[in-house]
C-alpha cells in the first residue's frame, strides 16, 4: 500500500511539473508584450517594469526562476494590481470557491444516492422513467441557463407574488450558498444518479444479496449494508472527475451569482490579460485537481484492494 501511495505521489508531482511547464510556455508564446499598455510609457519605465517582473532575463533563467518560485509556493505579483501578490489573491478567493464546491459536491452525492435508489427501486416504472428524463435534461442544459432561469423565477415570484425565497445573487449568508451550490452540483448529481442506478441494478443480481435475503435480514439492512454499500464503490472513482467538473463549473456559477470566488477572479484576470494571475491560478488549480484525484485514488485503494494490486504490477 505504501509503495502504491509513493508511486502515485511521485507521478502526481511529475504531473504538476508538466502542468506548470505547459502553462509557462503557453503563456510565453502569447503574441505581443505583457508590458505593451500605457503603463510602460517611456523606455525607462518599461525597463524597470521588465526588471520587476524578471522579463529582462533569458527564457531559460525565467523558466527556472518560475519553477523555483512555484516550488516554494510563490506565484508572483499581479500585473494589473501591482501591489497584490497572487498568493494573497488565491488566499482571499479560493476559500469561497472551496466552500461552494464542497457544498455542491455534498448536495450532488446525497441527491444522487436518493434519486438513484428511488430510480432503481421502481425500475422500468414511471418514477424511474421520470427521474431518468430529468437526469438527461439536467445534463443537457448548460449551467448558466439553469442559473438564469432560476434567478428569473425567483425574481418573478418576488415581483408577482411577493414571495422572496432565496437571494438572487451575492454572498454572505447561508441562503446565498444554497442556489449556486445546487446549480453547480446539478450535472454531477445527474451523472452520479445514473451511475448509481446502473450499479444498484447490477449489484441486485449478486449472490450475496440472495444469501442476505435467505438469512432473513430486514430489507432496510440488506439495502444499506449490502446493496447500497457495494453499489457506491464505483461512485468513488468518479469523484475525481466530479471535483474537476465542480471546480471549473464554478467559473460560470460564480459569475452568474456574483460570488467573489477564485473562478470569477480568474475569468476577470483573463479578460484583463493579467499574466501572473492567469499562470498562478492555472497551476494552483492544476495542482489542486491532481491532489484531489490522488486522494480519491488512495481512498479507493483502501476501500477496494483489487485496485492497488492491479496498479503495482
Amino acid at each position: 500500500m505504501w509503495r502504491y501511495i509513493f508511486k502515485r505521489l511521485l507521478s502526481g508531482i511529475i504531473t504538476i511539473w508538466f502542468i506548470a511547464t505547459a502553462t509557462f510556455f503557453a503563456m510565453h508564446f502569447v503574441p505581443g508584450d505583457p508590458l505593451s499598455d500605457a503603463r510602460a510609457a517611456t523606455p525607462e519605465i518599461r525597463k524597470n517594469l521588465q526588471i520587476k517582473y524578471g522579463l529582462d532575463r533569458p527564457l531559460s533563467t525565467q523558466y527556472f526562476l518560475y519553477l523555483r518560485n512555484m516550488a516554494r509556493g510563490d506565484f508572483g505579483i499581479s500585473f494589473t494590481q501591482q501591489n497584490r501578490r497572487v498568493n494573497d489573491i488565491i488566499r482571499a478567493h479560493f476559500p469561497v470557491s472551496a466552500l461552494l464546491g464542497v457544498i455542491a459536491l455534498f448536495i450532488a452525492v446525497v441527491g444522487a444516492v436518493v434519486w438513484g435508489a428511488v430510480s432503481a427501486h421502481f425500475r422500468q416504472r414511471w418514477p424511474d422513467h421520470l427521474i431518468m428524463l430529468v437526469v438527461i435534461c439536467a445534463v443537457s442544459m448548460p449551467s448558466f441557463v439553469i442559473a438564469a432561469l432560476l434567478q428569473w423565477l425567483l425574481l418573478a415570484l418576488d415581483r408577482y407574488f411577493g414571495v422572496s425565497l432565496l437571494p438572487v445573487a451575492g454572498w454572505g449568508s447561508w441562503q446565498h450558498v444554497l442556489l449556486p451550490a445546487w446549480v453547480l452540483g446539478l450535472s454531477t448529481m445527474a451523472y452520479m444518479t445514473r451511475l448509481l442506478r446502473a450499479n444498484l441494478l447490477e449489484v441486485a443480481q449478486a449472490d450475496y444479496l440472495r444469501t442476505a435475503r435467505a438469512k432473513g435480514l430486514t430489507p432496510t439492512r440488506i439495502f444499506f449494508r449490502h446493496h447500497l454499500r457495494n453499489a457506491l464503490l464505483p461512485v468513488i472513482t468518479v469523484l475525481g472527475p466530479a471535483i474537476a467538473a465542480i471546480t471549473t463549473g464554478g467559473f460560470v456559477v460564480e459569475l452568474m451569482f456574483a460570488i467573489p470566488g477564485l473562478g470569477r477572479y480568474f475569468v476577470e484576470a483573463v479578460q484583463q490579460l493579467d499574466y501572473t494571475v492567469i499562470m498562478g491560478t492555472t497551476v494552483f488549480y492544476g495542482a489542486f485537481l491532481v491532489l484531489m484525484v490522488l486522494l480519491v485514488d488512495i481512498l479507493y485503494g483502501f476501500v477496494d484492494p483489487r485496485i492497488r494490486v492491479g496498479h503495482s504490477r
Binding site: I19, A22, T23, A244, T247, T248, T282, G286, L289
Partner: peptide
Amino acid sequence: ALPFLLFMIL
C-alpha cells in the same frame, strides 16, 4: 491532468 477549461482559455 491539465485543468481543462483553464487550458482552453490559456
